[in-house]
Lab assay of single mutants.
Amino acid sequence: LQAFIKTLTGKTFTVEMEPSDTIENLKAKIQDKEGIPPDQQRLIFAGKQLEDGRTLSDYNIQKESTLHLVL
């Protein structure tokens, strides 16, 4: 599935991932794409901060969901 990552500066980019991917995997993909170390990334979806060990499906993240990236 493709999801949108929106930063506080208003920049939006897309990442490809599977519902079974962990938040940790997602942070690694963001690092590959944007060069931001995972330990500096905080991802917010539906008002909740996402925990590394959980999966996208745990948070009911669907295709074309928008996640907010806070540094």
Rank of each mutant, 00 (worst) to 15 (best):
L1N: 06
F4S: 07
F4G: 03
F4R: 13
F4P: 02
F4K: 13
I5P: 01
T7Y: 14
T7V: 07
T9V: 07
T9G: 13
G10R: 04
G10L: 03
T12E: 08
T12V: 13
F13Y: 05
T14I: 13
V15Q: 01
E16K: 08
E16M: 13
M17E: 00
M17Q: 02
E18N: 13
S20F: 11
D21L: 04
I23Q: 01
I23S: 01
I23F: 02
N25H: 13
L26V: 06
K27C: 02
K27H: 01
A28T: 09
A28E: 09
A28C: 07
K29G: 02
I30V: 05
I30P: 01
Q31H: 14
Q31S: 12
Q31L: 10
D32K: 13
D32W: 09
K33I: 15
K33V: 13
G35P: 02
I36C: 04
I36M: 04
P37H: 11
P38I: 15
D39Q: 10
D39W: 14
Q40D: 07
Q41T: 03
R42C: 11
R42N: 10
L43S: 00
L43W: 02
F45K: 03
F45N: 02
F45R: 02
F45I: 05
F45T: 02
A46N: 15
G47E: 04
K48D: 06
Q49T: 14
Q49W: 13
Q49M: 14
E51C: 07
E51M: 09
E51P: 02
D52G: 06
D52L: 05
D52R: 03
G53E: 09
G53M: 08
G53I: 06
L56P: 02
L56V: 13
D58W: 12
D58P: 00
Y59W: 02
Y59G: 01
Y59P: 01
Y59M: 04
Y59N: 02
I61L: 08
Q62L: 12
Q62T: 15
E64F: 14
E64H: 14
T66I: 15
T66V: 15
L67V: 12
L67N: 02
H68T: 13
L69G: 00
L69P: 00
L69S: 00
V70M: 12
L71E: 06
L71Q: 07
